[in-house]
């Protein structure tokens, strides 16, 4: 390949006058796009994002019902009855889990020094696992927003397991497919029950399961209170999860 030759002596010096308005505008636009000003302050917040907070947007519940879970983090006592119920209901083998409990230790804290955090599939609105799947074995259900699996399409490449920000997937050797939480859709919801096995069995009322698109549901009323702090795990992943956390 021939190298293009530059005659450096003949190159014009770029002064502010020599740059056209259009060129300048293009450059500024690029800068704004990078800093996130054009995207409404989503990347680097230079503009207000108060009314863009996820739970307060108006047209953000595209599913009916829009299944979701609220977790009272401070109530969890790690009795693991939820895990037992889940394994029993959904035939989860001992080497995997659909839901588990993490613990955070704070030895320097006053009073209680340990906190248990229940985790499960967050049924993201922009699921990285679905984006990553090469065979469309996992998909976002258009009716209720649950991220489901078609076992026979799964080739076991585990791309979804790598993509998942919540580590909520495991490879099930009996099914020859990756398995995950489906909010008990297969085992309970599709059979007319209204709640998940884990939420039903919890003795401390940690897990509130419900329809976020229904303004009369408990979860809608809890999530949309200004007084209550609501957060999600790993918001930086941009996956728009549907499992919310709070204390109280």
């Amino acid at each position: 390949m021939m190298q293009k030759k530059f005659d450096f002596d003949k190159l014009e010096i770029e002064l502010p006058d020599s740059i056209s308005k259009i060129e300048r505008r293009k450059f500024l636009k690029m800068g704004f796009a990078i800093t996130g000003l054009l995207l409404g302050g989503k990347i680097l917040s230079l503009t207000s994002v108060v009314d863009k907070g996820y739970a307060f947007q108006k047209e953000k519940y595209p599913y009916k019902p829009h299944y979701s879970m609220l977790i009272y983090q401070n109530r969890c006592i790690d009795c693991e009855l939820c895990m037992e119920a889940c394994s029993k209901t959904n035939q989860v083998p001992s080497y995997g889990y659909r839901t588990t409990i993490l613990q955070r230790k704070m030895p320097q804290a006053i009073d209680q020094q340990i906190e248990f955090i229940p985790v499960l599939c967050n049924q993201c609105n922009r699921p990285p696992c679905v984006t990553g799947c090469p065979t469309r074995a996992t998909y976002k259900d258009k009716r209720n927003g649950i991220v489901m699996m078609i076992n026979k399409k799964c080739i076991g490449c585990k791309t979804c397991m790598t993509a998942c920000p919540y580590n909520a997937r495991y490879y099930n050797e009996e099914k020859h497919a990756v398995d995950k939480c489906d909010f008990c859709y297969g085992s309970r919801l599709s059979k007319g029950l209204t709640t998940t096995a884990c939420a039903e069995v919890c003795p401390a009322g940690v897990r509130i399961f419900g329809d976020l698109s229904d303004p009369n549901s408990e979860i809608f009323r809890m999530v949309h209170q200004l007084e209550r702090t609501i957060w999600v795990l790993r918001p930086e992943s941009g996956a728009a999860p549907n499992v919310f956390y709070t204390r109280g």
Partner: peptide, 17 residues
């Protein structure tokens, strides 16, 4: 003694504990 509706994990050590 301390109230029982807060600070759950002071007593509850869980399965992990």
């Amino acid at each position: 003694g301390f109230a029982m509706d807060k600070q759950c994990t002071k007593c509850h050590i869980g399965v992990k504990g």
